[in-house]
């Protein structure tokens, strides 16, 4: 059994968010972190590795420095990693990205017992589209919002976290599962042993040449030019002001409120 964990390096939005004049994120000026939902996917894959001894492969599409993130995931316990990186892939939207990742996994081979784990969504784009699109392109079942994954033979039992409760779903491998950040899942630390060995573990780089002939790739729908999504405008929404608590009896409060709304010409 092999688990591919798809991960993305994202700007740390807990600090200051910087936007380029063209509306795209200024990634260079922000610290890069592993997308939080992806950390949950990594942890759930490593838990299955602890239980079954399966192979865990970290997969990302990104510029060459993304290797650093993959090495960190190996230092956490993954066996190997795949970096999908080519200038031709740059600027891909979710449609193009999922096509390329699906092609890469198809090339690497998805066996009968294998699974693909993704984070639910990345904190930079927040689309939650790449995971499900990979599943569609590979024509395998998908389960989203997982906070727990158990496997016996080819059957996978997934606990989904929804707004109003949990749902247990049984799914057949090979399948794709998107994982969600949850307080019950604490991503493990790297270990010092893992760190000492992570740069000697296998890391395969798949470039344009390696993937261009894959049947899942359509050369005119990859990269910035081939992406159907275009950013029309991006901006930081103005901050909401501090709320005001009105004081007095109910009548006084209502009068006060009406007075304020009238002054602002709301009513």
């Amino acid at each position: 059994m092999r688990i591919y964990v798809c991960v993305k390096q994202v700007p740390d939005t807990s600090g200051k968010v910087a936007v380029n004049p063209d509306g795209t994120l200024n990634r260079a000026s922000m610290a890069a972190i592993i997308n939080p939902d992806d950390m949950s996917a990594i942890e759930q894959a490593l838990k299955l590795k602890d239980a079954t001894g399966c192979q865990v492969t970290a997969v990302t599409m990104g510029p060459p420095p993304a290797e650093g993130m993959l090495r960190e995931i190996i230092a956490m316990g993954a066996d190997d990693a795949v970096l999908i990186s080519a200038r031709e892939f740059g600027g891909s939207d979710t449609f193009a990205t999922s096509q390329i990742i699906a092609a890469a996994i198809h090339k690497l081979g998805l066996g009968k017992e294998d699974m693909i784990f993704c984070g639910r969504q990345a904190i930079d784009g927040d689309t939650a589209q790449v995971g499900p699109q990979i599943a569609e392109k590979l024509n395998i079942p998908q389960v989203t919002y997982a906070t727990g994954i158990k496997k016996s033979e080819n059957l996978v039992l997934v606990k989904r976290m929804l707004e109003d409760g949990y749902m247990m779903i049984e799914v057949q491998a090979p399948c794709l599962i998107t994982c969600i950040k949850d307080k019950t899942i604490k991503p493990r630390y790297m270990t010092l042993n893992g760190i000492m060995e992570c740069y000697s573990k296998p890391l395969e780089v798949l470039n344009y040449e390696a993937l261009k002939d894959e049947p899942l790739i359509e050369l005119d729908t990859i990269g910035l030019k081939g992406s159907p999504t275009n950013i029309f405008k991006s901006f930081t929404p103005p901050q909401k002001g501090v709320g005001i608590m009105l004081q007095g009896t109910d009548k006084e409060k209502v009068d006060d409120l009406v007075d304020r709304l009238q002054k602002k010409h709301v009513i």
Binding site: R71, E72, A75, Y189, M190, L192, I195, M196, C198, Y199
Partner: peptide
């Protein structure tokens, strides 16, 4: 490796 240890 030392950079990663520092981060850890």
């Amino acid at each position: 490796e030392q950079e990663l240890l520092k981060k850890l």
